[in-house]
Nucleic acid binder design. Structure first.
Length: 469
RNA sequence: GGUCCGAUGGCCGAUUGGUUAGGCACGGGACUGCAAAUCCCCCUAGGGCGGUUCGAUUCCGCCUCGGACCUCCA
């Protein structure tokens, strides 16, 4: 399967040509652990989780690295405000992050380096950059010299003049050039710091990712991912650091950036009152994690995505339909390879998850037709060949393809009836007796009483089943 | 102000130089004691103005609107 990705570096869709097809290496910028993950933080996690699953399906060996930034001035500020020790904040927030992302069925990356675990590598990078004339020490700082790297601005598509013209920061006096950025900065006794050739200090943000990707993926690797808002300055600076330190042509061959997530049409912010954490979503119910994942995947990863509670409910309804199909007894059947490939094919085209989901729904319809009856003509108009509905086959294909999307991993009965213990069997038996006596009023009364508890009965050929609304 | 991205039905969202996928909502039907689930049908849309073309939603230009970034935001 040939993969194609839109490469931010060239602003074009390109065929994916691995550096080493036997070993694919991907790095994605992870969270700064000072607060609970918000909805926007979850988007790159889910998007690149799907990409990692796809890569693992296509290539024999994949190393996916996603870092934890656990040294940062936002963390320091949080500790000063709350009085909680920094180590406690980062440990708790990291655990919360892991729990939240697992609730979205995002697999753990293969390696999850921490910034504090890679201070020696960061110092080594600073020394290499100074030795090569790309950085200089000044007043306890180490600064990257933007003027030493002619290609600075290539990733973000800016010229150094543009960057300078748009700069809205105060230029520190020790900077040789307004665009120079910090690799290392001094720490006072109240601030976390590590001994270095330039005195006790701490790393700048950008150097962390250069150090961690170098350590775990090498000087040049295949894919670098992250949010679109990180292109400048974070990724631009990463490229400058890594390329200049190692003397390589590039840092990563393919740069993938996900679009921003909006809430009710506006960017999330605490001042607007539309700031939502993943935990807020998960509190909606046991279905909410998967419904949110579905919501993220039904929009192409590069588009901006507008979150709303109504959209989340719609995603739950769509998953209800899938789980209704999966809950129906089905015979063991072979998994038709062609059906799985047909669903996954769009993923190879710059991770077109919305089209893959549409095809997954077509397979669901095919399975329903095999079991319940109907005409496959509408589905056949879209499929590459007229697959005959055979009970169990499309179902098996749905389950295998959904694994790559990280969907439909839950037990269908648990999905339909989960969210609390309910003993409805006795009520169903009583209603069955009333129906046998053609006492429709009593039968409907029982059904309505259950409905008042959000329990929906479904009479089918194999008897009566139930689910939660 | 600069750089870049986008605009598709009531809503969400793909594909495409030649009758605009799919989903949700709405409406109708089959099935059902009535429902639910399922299936069938219906709903046929490309911001505005130009250009290229036999033909433009698709390619190009301008305008409008929205968004991202412009030195530590996913």
């Amino acid at each position: 399967m040939q993969l194609r990705f839109h490469n931010s570096l060239t602003r074009r869709a390109e065929d994916f040509r691995p550096i080493d097809p036997a070993h694919i290496r991907m790095y994605v910028c992870g969270p700064t652990v000072y607060d609970l993950a918000h909805l926007g933080n979850a988007r790159p996690v889910v998007v690149f989780d799907v990409l990692a699953r796809l890569l693992r399906r296509v290539f024999p060996h994949v190393t996916y690295a996603r870092n934890i930034t656990d040294v940062d001035d936002k963390i320091n500020a949080r500790a000063r405000e709350s009085g909680e020790p920094i180590g406690a904040i980062t440990a708790r927030t990291t655990a919360d992050f892991h729990a939240d992302m697992r609730a979205l069925n995002a697999l753990d990356p293969d390696v999850e380096p921490t910034a504090t675990g890679h201070i020696p590598e960061m110092i080594a990078l600073c020394e290499k950059l100074i030795a090569r004339g790309h950085a200089y020490a000044a007043e306890g700082h180490v600064l990257f010299s933007v003027g030493s790297f002619p290609e600075y601005g290539k990733l973000s598509g800016r010229s150094p003049e543009d960057l300078l013209a748009g700069a809205r920061i105060d230029v520190a006096p020790y900077k040789r050039d307004a665009g120079d950025f910090v690799l290392w900065k001094p720490s006072d006794t109240e601030t976390p710091g590590w001994d270095s050739p330039w005195g006790r200090g701490r790393p700048g943000w950008h150097i962390e990712c250069s150090a961690m990707s170098w350590k775990h993926l090498g000087e040049v690797f295949d894919i670098h991912g992250g949010g679109h808002d990180l292109i400048f300055p974070h990724h631009e600076n990463e490229v400058a650091q890594s390329v200049c330190a190692h003397g390589t042509q590039t840092m990563a061959r393919y740069w993938l950036h996900n679009g921003m997530l909006l809430v009710d049409g506006e960017k999330m912010s605490k001042s607007l009152g539309n700031f939502l954490t993943v935990r807020d979503i998960l509190a909606r119910g046991p279905w909410a994690g998967e419904a949110f994942r579905y919501l993220l995947l039904r929009t192409h990863y590069r588009s901006s995505l507008d979150y709303s509670a109504a959209a989340l409910d719609e995603c739950k309804a769509e998953l209800d339909d899938f789980y209704a199909m999966l809950a129906r007894p089905a015979p063991e059947a072979r998994t038709p390879r062609a059906m799985v490939d047909w669903v996954l094919e769009p993923l190879g085209d710059d991770l077109n998850t919305p089209l893959a989901l549409a095809r997954l729904r077509d397979l669901r319809t095919l399975e329903n037709i095999a079991n319940v009856g109907g005409s496959p003509a509408a589905v056949h108009a879209r499929t590459p060949e007229a697959w005959h509905p055979v009970p169990g086959e499309a179902r098996a294909a749905v389950l295998e393809a959904a694994q790559v999307l990280g969907l439909l991993w839950q037990d269908p009965a648990a999905w339909r009836q989960g969210g609390g213990d309910a003993d409805v069997d006795a009520a169903i038996a009583a209603r069955l007796a009333a129906r046998a006596a053609k006492n429709w009023a009593e039968a409907d009364r029982i059904r309505d009483a259950l409905k008042a508890q959000d329990i929906i009965l479904e009479d089918g050929p194999q008897g009566t089943t139930w689910r939660r609304a």
